[in-house]
Design a protein around this nucleic acid. Structure first.
Length: 214
DNA sequence: GCGTAGATCGTCT
DNA sequence: GACGATCTACGCT
């Protein structure tokens, strides 16, 4: 494996999208309100195809980043650099960045092209794998799926190796809290933009942030 | 359970 | 040159 090939996903994440009868989101969904999308993505399946097999997990924790008005967002005040450029793409693209010299974080870009908002994917679970820590936290989520910067800018709706599917229509108890790890962001640090499945063992963060009320 | 420190390097000023 | 949309290990309660 050289630096030009993405690391493989964890083999425990293998699953069958057809067997679960999952279907894809439409472009219009990703162009909508970012906060609503962040909430709606809890329960959705994120999937990657690698050497012909599908690997994936059900999202259990997300955060909304509201672009130029959000001091916690990389696109705050319209900042537009090579790294952040995928955030300005049409809804339904992926934005992946590298932090702390060792971790990657993955986001789903929202809103129409030109508006740089996104949903951070913080945690997921693969019920069959029964390994709650494997995808718990944005860094571990990317590590388990083998997501690196080379996927930044990928379109999740085009025929490709990355996809997002509706979860099954089960009723979820959604928790809401402020976002994690953005204490530098002034009043934005208190905005209730983190959403999670209150019944999932894979939700990340300290205990008090795993009990937020709907 | 909690808080703190250190790792480690791409990105931006 | 400073700083992370993080994680782990460690010590204390």
């Amino acid at each position: 494996m050289n630096k030009f090939s993405a690391p493989p996903p964890d083999t425990r994440l293998r699953f069958d999208p057809e067997g679960l009868a999952l279907h894809e989101f439409e472009r219009a969904f990703f162009r909508g309100d970012t906060t609503r999308i962040a909430r709606a993505l809890v329960g959705a399946w994120f999937a990657r195809r690698y050497e012909g097999e599908w690997y994936g997990a059900r999202l259990v924790e997300t955060e909304a980043y509201l672009g130029s008005r959000d001091a916690a967002a990389h696109s705050y005040r319209g900042r537009r650099t090579a790294r952040v450029e995928p955030m300005y793409m049409d809804g339904g693209h992926l934005y992946v960045y590298f932090v702390y010299g060792m971790h990657h974080c993955a986001n789903i870009v929202t809103r129409p092209a030109g508006t740089a908002e996104a949903v951070l994917l913080r945690a997921a679970e693969n019920p069959a794998a029964a390994h709650p820590r494997l995808l718990s936290g944005p860094g571990r989520f990317c590590a388990a799926l083998g997501l690196t910067r080379e996927f930044s800018g990928s379109d999740l709706l085009e025929e490709g190796d990355l996809r997002l599917f509706h979860g099954r229509a089960r009723r979820l108890r959604i928790g809401v809290t402020p976002r994690i790890g953005i204490d530098y962001s002034g009043e934005a640090k208190d905005w209730p933009l983190r959403f999670f499945d209150r019944d999932s063992p894979a939700v990340s963060g300290p205990a008090r942030l795993r009990r937020g009320l709907e």
